[in-house]
């Protein structure tokens, strides 16, 4: 799981152009939106695309998305549980 979290952090930095951040700056359990990284709605869409593109996983509903995209840890858990 730790390896996946680290990989995911790098992918998030790249996908969201978080130029001034490193993987060490991202708290795995902190909320990604509003607090924490302070991401916005466009970032949420970009993370949805990231899951689909890199892990072939499609978020089906907004409620599901809120839970999955809560933190890096929640994203990693979803990937490890659902990756084909």
């Amino acid at each position: 799981m730790e390896e996946l979290i680290l990989k995911l952090k790098s992918e998030i930095i790249e996908a969201l152009n978080l130029e001034e951040m490193s993987v060490d700056d991202i708290d795995s359990e902190a909320p990604l939106f509003i607090e924490g990284l302070g991401l916005d709605s466009i970032d949420a869409l970009e993370l949805t695309v990231l899951l689909e593109k890199k892990y072939a996983l499609k978020i089906q509903t907004a409620d599901e998305g809120k839970k999955i995209l809560y933190s890096v840890k929640s994203m990693a858990e979803y990937i490890s549980q659902n990756k084909k």
Partner: peptide, 9 residues
């Protein structure tokens, strides 16, 4: 086919 929302805006 992965339309990028952050580029689209």
């Amino acid at each position: 086919y992965f339309p990028s929302p952050s580029v689209f805006v």
